[in-house]
Nucleic acid binder design. Structure first.
Lengths: 206, 206
DNA sequence: AATTGTGAACCTCTTCACAGCT
DNA sequence: AGCTGTGAAGAGGTTCACAATT
């Protein structure tokens, strides 16, 4: 299949959310123009993004909100639940366990890992904390698809390597460091300092 | 000044971090090739990014790590401390208060806001929790430059509007919703669901 | 000999603009 | 009449390739 850009995939996520809000408001039909306005982009962008995957609208009328949300959900793979593991239970890790937004989108944290002997075998939100060395066994048992990395920078690469060795291929990385992975593994970085530094740059310029 | 792309600014942040690590390892000189390798990009990209701001290297030799880190810090506005306010003390908000990475880069949380009467006037990590309606007074007193939005989606727009009215022009937004702001205000979105959904898409394709 | 700095080429993403459908 | 879907044009970002410098 033709390679779709990260930007397009990211925007599909925002359309998906927008459509959910419109459906809550009982809106049944929406134009690309309206979706664009709600997200601060152009209507041509919305139509082009969708055109990579099919034709979902009716000329002269627009899109059926429920049907389009359903299609985008299917495209993004949100019609299934994903089993997520969390590695590292510092401040960020603990916050993510309770983050309702994930569950709402079908991402369920099914296992927690840490390497601190004090924490291993304790319970957190009904989940037993496992030692990182038991990764393969637990990942298999819980059918883990995605791992959130919330460990210190110095451990991030080795922890990810351990998960890769057990067959995990998708990571959301909160450690502010660049990770090396094979071509068939995807790492998405969530680096809050980078965004803050962009704000710092902006304020310095203006 | 010529408009510099967000991607370039984002990469400068990563170079800044990379240089910090190299300096810790007592490395005194580094080539664009080495910086590129450590970040999984090309050396031409590194040189081009830097070229927008000046010439910092020596042909045949590379860059002095300390000097280059210093220059990038100056470009990004990291030579000063930034006073940050946090709006919303749910799971994410509380995690961010303790997030050491921010302080390390010169971003200091100086004020906390919430609208829950139960929380207002309580103390959190040595900071008094203020009601969001007192924004202007506190923002002025604490010389707030940047506000982190960690409130529920339904309040995000109105809270940001309140801060804008008090002269704040830079926001890091964790609420998964699109915010409308005037042209001279910058909002950087930190939306973890979008990244997870990109992983979902990737796993569905491959 | 090594590596920078940069114009030009290349590639990718966004916007335009309009034919075509409802 | 209104709005989609899309090829073509335009804008912007990345990589190439090489002269310049140490």
């Amino acid at each position: 299949m033709k390679k779709i850009s990260d930007s397009t995939i990211g925007r599909l996520s925002t359309y998906y959310r927008t459509l959910g809000e419109l459906i809550e408001q009982k809106v049944q039909t929406v134009s690309s123009e309206k979706i664009a306005d709600l997200n601060g982009i152009t209507s041509a962008q919305v139509r082009k993004d969708l055109s990579f995957f099919g034709t979902f609208g009716k000329r002269g009328l627009g899109y059926n909100t429920v049907a389009l949300k359903d299609e985008i959900g299917r495209i993004l793979g949100l019609k299934q639940n994903w089993n997520v593991a969390l590695a590292g239970i510092g401040n960020i890790g603990r916050a993510l366990i309770d983050y309702g937004e994930f569950k709402k989108q079908g991402f369920f944290i099914k296992a927690i890992f840490d390497n601190d002997p004090q924490k291993v075998n304790s319970e957190l939100k009904g989940l037993k904390v496992h030692h990182i060395d038991d990764v393969c066994e637990i990942a298999k048992k819980e059918k883990i698809n995605i791992v959130i990395i919330a460990v210190p920078v110095k451990n991030a690469q080795s922890v990810i390597d351990q998960f890769i060795d057990c067959g995990i291929r998708a990571f959301l990385n909160f450690a502010p460091t660049s990770i090396k992975v094979p071509g068939d593994v995807m790492v998405k970085n969530e680096n809050m300092s980078i965004e803050l530094e962009a704000l710092s740059y902006y304020l310095t310029q203006n």
